[in-house]
Design a protein around this nucleic acid. Structure first.
Length: 776
DNA sequence: GCGTATCGCGTTTTT
DNA sequence: CGCGATACGC
């Protein structure tokens, strides 16, 4: 797909993770400072100043709309800023910081909280541009990172030590597995739709602060007969995490809340230090986070939260945009400020996005306006199929670039990661470099988890899940044995000794020896980078055996991990960071010199902006997602489209394929996304239909400079190995997916009915179906 | 018979 | 990539 040279460049820029990482350590330093401060109680101004970005010129305060400035900045007490996308909410927040500093508030008393590390960095960076040198010390961080630091400091007050491991959702799946086997439950016994539903229910119930029982009767009534089992499962889940010193994202928050509510010492230290609290992206907070904010502000109510209810797209992980609605009740005398001037998009784009969101059923009403007039209307293109859509996008991108738009000012957005596959092929063929975001994270692939689990064990020897993972690699050791050993180790006070002394079976004794001696060596070591080298000596052979078909590529990723780990002196910090916010497998946008366009899921594109934005796959069944039900889920999909469309400054292109491949490899004709269909007319223009062409020739007409003739057989010929003339009733054929079958009916066109042995009667189109004749 | 190795299938978004 | 179902080995 991607040829050698490009691949190299991608890999090189992967290594450019370093600058971002520096930024992270800077950020980490901020948090550390805070943790130190928290430890020593209410503090005086500290000596160590952190230069966030000293080389950057300061922003001009006059930059702000005077009315806004007045409204936002002169207000004391609780403030709720709501506004649409592109209205400068985050900037407003930074201005308020500036104002507070002007008034003599120490930067050490201001706390900025955000949802993602990316936006915290962005905010700190903006603050640094705004503030002059003496004031470049503002403490900010994510909810999760902050909670982590505090709990490591104060954990003992809540009954657990500071040695805990943070686990993510996919680890939680592992837990459910262990629990299910220890409880003797199987998926079949319980007839659950999927394991994922269980996890979503259990963790969803926690972070929504809703008792699981209520959740079952509200949302999963069809599972109510299993309510008891689920409750039992949830209870075991909590106990399991507790006994093995594991904490998931929700636990971090819940325990932070407990810390504030139950440990007066901690509350006093924190609340007394921070006299001003600010939260960005408030619509992304969940109930627990809202309570944390309430507790933090207890006694002074100097809170400013900033958000847009129309941009709430994270409800699946517990975010609740009613938090915004409730805020005025939580904090009496709230000043509500709407920012309705948009500074990002031109009027035609804004008209479209306004119309998208005005169909929403529940929201703060606001109508955005802009002074950026612009004449270019959004463009809708109905492509015959995905391939044509991809070509359209590639072609338009080239036009934009030719007209002077820089590559990094263009983005292609889509609902789900795999929607861009066809486009990726097309772009690679056209020599356009791109960067894909929002796909798999670096630490999500199996080999990365493997390498990390050794380190996680060293940071927390009671990390049962990581033990499990490591033990499974021993030859002749499967899930059962691994679990037994892990259980033994978990109970022991000397885990590593327990490993060495475990009565191993004859067939795998040698493997155990090797593993035990690895850990013996590792325990002697303090520097993470050296530990990693030792681990790789052990892991390399296993790794090559496991992935021998594609291990060079994975090897490169391990090298990347090596580069990242080299930056850390402290193992715990490394483990925490990679779990709380894993680096992306492809390089991130912080790399200033990258001249590549961006392909991204809409979720990962939040808060960003580009000159030109393409939204692809706007077809029924793709957008909204096929499984989205009417009601709240439907509304969230609509907001998702709103978020996507509002990323565009000047050029907005919408497109969809009129034909999609269904899971059973058939093609199905689909219409435009209902969200676009319901818009009023005149908001966008349609690309004129291509020259009248029949369906059979749909490959034609868009490949500029390329003869249309070869493009069709090029695609088709490799696929259809069978001509209709080769077939007759009764001929035995084989299909890659359906297996073998017998031709039943031959239709006039190019389709046949085949009776498959395993899948029954299917109608197949010879242009698409991969049929081969079985000759016996 | 228990437990491990193998094959084939489907796949939303993610702090 | 990880799940379930099926097939082999101790």
């Amino acid at each position: 797909m991607v040829h050698g040279e490009e691949q190299d460049r991608t890999l090189k820029s992967n290594l450019l993770y370093t600058p971002q990482h520096r930024c992270q350590s800077m950020f980490q330093q901020c948090c550390d400072e805070w943790a130190t401060v928290v430890k020593s109680g209410p503090m005086q101004s500290s000596e160590n100043t952190i230069d966030i970005n000293p080389t950057h010129p300061a922003l001009d305060l006059a930059d702000l709309n005077p009315a806004q400035y007045e409204a936002v900045i002169r207000t004391e007490g609780p403030v709720l800023v709501i506004a649409g996308a592109g209205s400068g909410k985050t900037r407003t927040l930074v201005y308020r910081v500036a104002h507070l500093l002007e008034k003599g508030v120490s930067p050490d008393n201001i706390l900025l909280l955000t949802f993602t590390r990316k936006s915290s960095q962005e905010m700190l960076w903006r603050a640094s541009r705004l503030l002059n040198d003496s004031c470049s010390r503002v403490v900010g961080g994510t909810f999760h990172g902050t909670a982590n630091l505090l709990l490591r400091r104060y954990g003992s007050h809540l009954g657990f030590g500071s040695s805990f491991t943070i686990i993510d959702r996919s680890d939680a799946e592992g837990i459910i597995n262990l629990l299910k086997s220890s409880l003797g439950l199987t998926g079949r016994d319980l007839q659950f739709p999927t394991r994922r539903v269980i996890i979503n229910m259990i963790s969803g119930a926690v972070n929504k602060s809703i008792p699981l029982e209520d959740l079952i009767y509200r949302q999963y009534v069809h599972l109510s007969e299993h309510a008891d089992d689920l409750l039992k499962l949830q209870q075991h889940y909590q106990e399991f995490k507790f006994t093995h010193a594991l904490m998931d994202y929700d636990d971090l928050l819940v325990n932070w809340k407990r810390l504030l509510a139950e440990v007066p010492e901690a509350r006093q230290a924190i609340a007394a230090r921070f006299t001003h609290i600010m939260v960005d992206e408030y619509q992304d907070t969940n109930l627990v986070q809202a309570e944390i904010v309430r507790l933090l502000a207890y006694g002074h109510d100097n809170v400013m939260v900033v958000g847009d209810d129309s941009q709430s797209i994270y409800s699946f992980r517990g975010a609740d945009f009613y938090n915004i609605m409730r805020f005025p009740k939580l904090f009496p005398d709230t000043h509500i400020i709407k920012l309705e001037e948009n500074y990002r998009s031109t009027q035609p784009i804004l008209s479209l996005t306004n119309d998208i969101i005005c169909q929403a059923t529940e929201k703060y009403s606001k109508t955005l306006f802009t002074r950026l007039e612009g004449t270019i209307k959004p463009l809708l293109f109905a492509a015959a199929d995905e391939r044509e859509e991809a070509r359209f996008v590639a072609g338009k991108i080239k036009e934009l670039v030719a007209s002077g738009v820089r590559c990094q000012e263009i983005a292609v957005l889509f609902r789900s990661g795999f929607h861009s596959y066809k486009l990726e092929i097309e772009l690679a063929a056209g020599g356009l470099e791109f960067e894909k975001r929002g796909g798999l994270k670096l630490t999500e692939s199996a080999h990365m988890k493997d390498a990390l689990s050794f380190l996680r064990i060293l940071a927390n020897p009671r990390d049962n899940l990581s033990w499990n993972r490591v033990l499974l690699h021993l030859d002749k050791v499967g899930p059962k044995t691994a679990q037994k050993i892990a259980a033994q180790i978990g109970q022991s006070s000397e885990p590593f000794q327990a490993l060495a002394e475990y009565p191993a079976g004859k067939t795998w004794e040698a493997g155990m020896r090797l593993l035990a001696s690895l850990f013996a060596d590792l325990l002697e070591e303090k520097v993470p980078a050296v530990m990693f080298e030792l681990i790789m000596v052990y892991y390399q052979p296993i790794f090559e055996r496991l992935y021998h078909d594609d291990y060079p590529m994975r090897q490169k990723e391990l090298e990347q991990l090596r580069a990242i780990i080299a930056e850390y002196a402290d193992l715990q910090a490394f483990v925490d960071d990679t779990t709380l916010d894993p680096p992306e497998a492809v390089s991130s946008h912080r790399v200033e010199d990258s001249e590549r366009l961006v392909l991204s899921t809409i979720h990962s594109a939040k808060g960003l902006e580009w000159e030109g934005v393409f939204i692809i796959g706007l077809a029924e069944g793709r957008f909204p997602h096929a499984k989205a039900e009417a009601g709240e889920q439907w509304e969230e999909e609509r907001r998702l489209l709103y978020v996507a469309a509002t990323r565009a400054k000047k050029h907005l292109f919408l497109s969809y394929p009129k034909e999609l491949m269904t899971p059973d490899r058939q093609f199905r004709r689909v219409g435009v996304s209902p969200f676009l269909a319901e818009l009023k007319g005149g908001l966008f223009e349609r690309v004129a239909e291509e020259r009248p062409t029949s369906t059979l020739q749909m490959g034609q007409g868009y490949g500029r400079g390329e003869s249309a003739v070869p493009s069709i057989p090029h695609l088709r010929k490799s696929r259809s190995k069978v001509a209709i003339t080769d077939l007759a009733k009764g001929v035995r054929v084989s299909h890659a997916f359906f297996g073998t079958g017998t031709v039943a009916v031959i239709h006039g066109g190019r389709s046949v009915d085949v009776q498959f042995e395993r899948h029954g009667l299917k109608t197949l189109h010879l242009d698409y179906a991969k049929l081969t004749i079985v000759t016996e």
